[in-house]
Design a protein around this nucleic acid. Structure first.
Length: 202
DNA sequence: TAGGCCATCTGGTCCT
DNA sequence: AGGACCAGATGGCCTA
């Protein structure tokens, strides 16, 4: 027998007070169409939760878990906000955000490495030739493996133009190496930092 | 309608 | 004991 739902969502107190049973609750839409799930109060469950320490502990644990996941999502949003702009409607999914960030870091590192290797002039020309990321479909920015993309074996290449230039030179990624911070990176960050920002941030 | 993505709940495990 | 973290389960929404 399913729990009996008693009160309306407007009568809810804090999520700590309520027994959260989102699977039984109607979905609510917030600003921007974001899905809001308010827990419904189930009187029988609440009484049980108040009476039994175990139930109360569970409610607190649920609330903490909810809060933890919200923090995680906030961090992901913060990460999305510093990645190159994409078309308005193309909000990256969680997995896409993480992969894109990894690839983006790798790409920037490669850019700096090229500059550090004495290809400053070429680096500048490559940088100036880069298309706006906003003009690239989001799918092309997402890739499971930067190394795959660099080797041209992945269908969904990201930073296509950039990789083209990298591939023409020696590509450490093709040897299966993980991208590692280059000592000279910091030197060039201070030397060319402004130009990099202008290139990659829109 | 199936599949992808997401939010939430839940129980287990580890740590302080 | 209680909190943090994790993975599995579940159900809602959206889109092709």
């Amino acid at each position: 027998m399913s729990p009996k739902l008693i009160c309306a969502t407007t009568e809810l107190r804090t999520s700590v007070d309520a027994v959260a049973l989102s699977r039984f609750s109607p979905a609510l839409k917030g600003a921007g169409g974001k899905l809001l799930r308010k827990p419904l109060l189930v009187v029988g469950e609440e009484v049980r939760a108040v009476k039994h320490p175990r139930g109360r502990r569970r409610m607190k644990a649920n609330d903490r878990e909810r809060h933890r996941m919200h923090n995680l999502n906030s961090a992901l949003d913060a990460l999305r906000s510093i990645l190159p702009a994409l078309p308005e409607d193309a909000k990256l999914t969680k997995i896409e955000t993480l992969r894109f960030a990894r690839n983006y870091i790798w790409a920037l590192t490669e850019t700096l490495r090229m500059a550090a290797d004495g290809h400053t002039q070429e680096f500048m020309s490559v940088a100036s030739e880069l298309n706006s990321p906003a003009s690239v479909l989001s799918a092309e920015w997402d890739s499971a493996s930067p190394a795959e993309s660099a080797c041209g074996t992945s269908a969904d290449l990201h930073l296509r133009n950039f990789h083209t230039h990298v591939n023409e030179r020696s590509c450490s990624m093709c040897a299966g190496d993980e991208p590692t911070p280059h000592p000279v990176t910091f030197y060039f960050t201070s030397l060319c930092g402004e130009q990099l920002r202008n290139t990659w941030h829109y």
